[in-house]
Amino acid sequence: MTDTPLMTAIELYLTLGVAVFLLSLHGLMTLHDPIRRLIAVNLMGAGTFLVMVSLARRSEVPDPVLHALVVTGLVVAISATAFALRLIIAAHTEGGKQRDREDRNTEGGGKQPP
């Protein structure tokens, strides 16, 4: 059954989804630019959705449940992304042009007294 080309394509997309997920995880581990981090999270979402949609396509008629779930997920993603992006912008502009080093102090929390 797994020999049909379609199934192979699904395997491909499934793997692609996981690959994108992992790639974005790597991005999350290394990127310093907040915008790119957000992009990484979005890519991660895309990878997840890719897995879901591939799974939906296992049968001849795609699984409506998974599609519905992805639609929901997409909306969640866009709203969260929008909020996060505005938040990042606000943190970096309205925050009085703080430099990264200064920020680190407030963000680390575990700062020691001099």
Binding site: I10, F49, V53, R57, H67, V71, L74, A77, I78
Partner: peptide
């Protein structure tokens, strides 16, 4: 390509 037109539409508009 994966027969998910609802998603394609949404992705086009949103993504």
């Amino acid at each position: 390509r994966l027969d998910a037109p609802d998603l394609a539409l949404a992705e086009a508009a949103i993504g």
